[in-house]
Amino acid sequence: MSIADRIKISKRIAEELNEGQVVNLGVGIPTLIPDYLGNKQLYMQSENGLLGMGPTPVDEEINMDLISASKQPITMEAGASLFDSSNSFAMIRGGHIDVAVLGVLQVDQTGEIANWAVPGETILGVGGAMDLVAGAKKIIIATMQTAKDGKAKLVKKLTLPSSGVRKADMVVTEHAVFTFDEGHMRLVEIISDVSIEQLIELTDAEFTYSEETITSN
Rank of each mutant, 00 (worst) to 15 (best):
V104L: 02
S86Y: 10
N48C: 09
K157A: 05
N18C: 07
Q145D: 08
G150S: 04
A129K: 01
A78P: 10
D181G: 02
T173N: 11
I113K: 10
R6A: 14
M130A: 10
I62K: 03
T203M: 06
L51N: 01
S88H: 13
E212C: 11
T159Y: 04
K138I: 00
K8P: 06
M44I: 15
G79W: 12
N87C: 15
G49D: 10
V22D: 06
T56M: 09
F89C: 02
S70C: 04
N115H: 05
V194H: 05
I74F: 06
A136I: 01
I191A: 06
T146M: 12
S70A: 12
V188D: 09
I191Y: 05
H175S: 02
I13L: 10
T122R: 05
R6K: 14
S81C: 08
I139N: 01
I29N: 06
T179N: 07
K71M: 10
Q41L: 13
I140A: 03
G103C: 05
R186V: 14
M53G: 12
I62M: 04
T208R: 08
G26N: 03
L105Y: 11
Q45Y: 13
R6T: 13
Y36M: 08
D149I: 07
L102E: 12
R93W: 02
T213V: 15
L105K: 07
V171L: 01
E15W: 13
G79A: 14
I33L: 11
G94K: 14
V177C: 11
F178R: 05
G79C: 15
W116I: 06
I196E: 09
E60N: 06
V172I: 15
M144R: 15
S46C: 08
L132G: 00
N63T: 02
I191F: 02
L199W: 12
Q72I: 07
L187G: 11
K11F: 12
V22N: 11
T75G: 07
G150V: 08
N115M: 02
V165F: 04
A4E: 14
D193L: 00
I196R: 09
L187M: 04
F180N: 01
I92L: 09
T110S: 03
S10T: 03
V58N: 12
F207I: 01
M144I: 13
G95Q: 06
S46M: 06
D204L: 02
E61F: 01
V188M: 00
I33E: 11
L105M: 12
D169M: 08
A176C: 13
S163T: 12
K8F: 03
D65Q: 05
V23Y: 03
A136S: 14
L132W: 00
K157R: 11
K151S: 15
V99R: 02
G183A: 01
L158P: 00
M170D: 00
K11I: 06
S162C: 02
S68C: 03
P30H: 06
I123M: 10
T31G: 09
S10K: 07
E201S: 01
E189M: 07
T56V: 09
F83W: 08
I13Q: 11
E182T: 04
L160K: 10
L199D: 11
L105I: 11
K138G: 05
L42T: 07
A152R: 10
E112H: 14
S216L: 14
E206H: 08
G103A: 11
I140M: 00
D131N: 10
L37C: 15
S46W: 03
V126S: 02
K138L: 03
F207M: 08
